[in-house]
Amino acid sequence: MPIWGRSILLKLENISTHYGDVQALRNVSLGIKEGQIVSIIGSNGAGKTTTLNTISGVLRASSGTIEFLGRRIENLPPHQIVDLGVVQIPEARLLFPYMTVLENLELGAYTPKARKGKEENLKVVFRLFPVLEERKTQLAGTLSGGEQQMLAIARGLMAKPKLLMLDEPSLGLAPLLVKEVFEAVKEINAHGITVLLIEQNVFHSLSISDEAYVLENGRVVLEGEGKGLLDNPQVKEAYLGI
């Protein structure tokens, strides 16, 4: 797939983020082109989730700039960033447990833009995850782990994202379900949605990624083409210590 002809969708330049007085990101720069799948990998506490939270406006960067479609977004509140088409699917899913599957999906389409195409979007989502249509009147809290992850992704899709950011979608899922999730991510990407993926499952995420960044201690220590990094000894070392 030739990727270099495409326009830049999201660009982080020298982003630093602090939790109180603790620095979690140090001068992180990265770029995502339209239509790509990009992975961020790294061990626990390396700053992966912080990166996503900074992009989505949940955390404020202490310095640096974030551009989405050429527009500076680092000072916008989260709801405006969502409205622009940057949607984060949080780790541990964070569904609305006492609402039905359908209500969760409707809340996904909360922004004015997303509301317009809600019905068609719902069809697309149900085609992607047929199990959700079967369960649409069930309370989200009663779904199985795999179904909950599907719902979390589907809810994010309802927001009509241009960029979908997934935080550890395979967390706590059985191997078979992990495969399904990655299939779904590929299919979403095939619909033209750019994907930013955080994963512990290095093999799966790198093998579907166009590009990947390795974070260590809040810094980008390595970047490159996804599959190429699979053979990189540094990646192996970061994870296995061997």
């Binding site: 992990v178 093999f203 799966h204 699979l230 994870y239 296995l240």
Partner: peptide, 15 residues
């Protein structure tokens, strides 16, 4: 570090 199941669990089966 040589155990196949451990590597699978951590990095994905086919790593």
């Amino acid at each position: 570090s040589r155990d196949r199941r451990v590597i699978d669990a951590y990095l994905g089966e086919e790593y």
